[in-house]
């Protein structure tokens, strides 16, 4: 089934609609602007990648989408609704490993279902086992989180997030702390999962190749305060494979994006340095 998601993304309605979003923080004496006049639309079923320099405000953007933070001004509609109570419409995978160490792998995966589903205890367990299998943790159901490697911890987080059955999955640099081989393997597995579940994914990264391997559409952000610098469709067919990194279009887009970002990366380095002093 090639290209199924792609066409659906193009045809269907918006999952997330953002208009003139501003966010400023009070830091000591000065105000720091994280987002400035940011607008974009993310279609339902789309794998959207938010790409930008480190520290530019990408995380702030998805935290606002998730409902964990409130914008200073602007509108944001998630599934057509302004109600942004966290945990209602989106699920989230964080960069820091947030699975609960006091629960087993299976109990972690089943955690959300206590609140979001009407299933019986037995059904919840069966569903959790299904999800564990989906992320390749079927032999680690009873393991403690601290016994797992970073990649496995993130798989638990992904399965836990999938258990909420929410239509939108936000991933805030989920593979940022992994070594490059593990990261490639995790990207491959994430592709399999999202191509199967058809969820809308909002994926934050600063890794251009990661953005191209995973995304249907890439939203390139400026240095802080973040705006959308460019939106790009990734014209690679699905299912995606690691070998697509060798395609001409992949390599061309990679350097196109790099040239777009280069000045913003330098600007962000200076900005981060300034803010730390």
């Amino acid at each position: 089934m090639p290209d199924l998601r792609f066409s659906r993304a193009a045809a269907s309605k918006q999952a997330i609609r953002i208009r003139q979003l501003y966010k400023t923080y009070d830091a000591h004496k000065e105000k720091i602007a994280a987002l400035e006049n940011l607008s974009c639309d993310i279609a339902e079923g789309e794998f959207a990648v938010i790409l930008g320099p480190s520290g530019c405000g990408k995380s702030t953007l998805v935290r606002i989408i998730a409902g964990l933070e409130q914008p200073s001004s602007g509108t944001i509609l998630v599934n057509g609704s302004r109600d942004s109570a966290p945990g209602k419409t989106c699920s989230m995978v964080f960069q820091s490993y947030t699975s609960f160490p006091w629960l087993s792998v299976l109990d972690n995966i089943a955690f959300a279902m206590r609140y979001t589903s009407t299933k019986t205890k037995h059904e919840r367990r069966t569903r959790a086992q299904e999800l564990a299998r989906m992320v390749g943790l079927e032999n680690f159901e009873n393991a403690w989180i601290n016994e797992l490697s970073g990649g496995m911890k993130q798989r638990v987080s992904i399965a836990s997030a999938l258990a909420t059955e929410s239509r939108i999955l936000i991933m805030d640099e989920p593979f940022g702390a992994l070594d490059s081989q593990t990261r490639m393997a995790m990207q491959e597995q994430l592709l399999t999962i999202t191509e199967k579940t058809g969820k809308t994914v909002v994926f934050v990264t600063h890794d251009i190749e990661e953005a191209l391997v995973l995304g249907d559409r890439i939203y390139v952000c400026t240095s802080r305060p973040a705006r959308i610098l460019a939106e790009m469709d990734v014209a690679l067919p699905r299912p995606r494979t690691p070998e697509m990194r060798n395609r001409k279009i992949f390599v061309e887009m990679k350097y196109e994006i790099f040239h777009l970002l280069r000045d913003h990366v330098y600007a962000q380095i200076l900005e981060t340095h300034r803010a730390r002093r």
């Binding site: 998730a66 964990l68 966290p86 945990g87 209602k88 989106c90 699920s91 989230m92 964080f94 820091s96 947030t98 699975s99 609960f100 955690f111 959300a112 609140y115 979001t116 987080s157 836990s160 997030a161 258990a163 909420t164």
Partner: peptide, 11 residues
């Protein structure tokens, strides 16, 4: 972030 994760899981 444990609290945030729990809230995002619907708690």
């Amino acid at each position: 972030d444990f609290y945030e994760a729990a809230v995002m899981l619907g708690a």
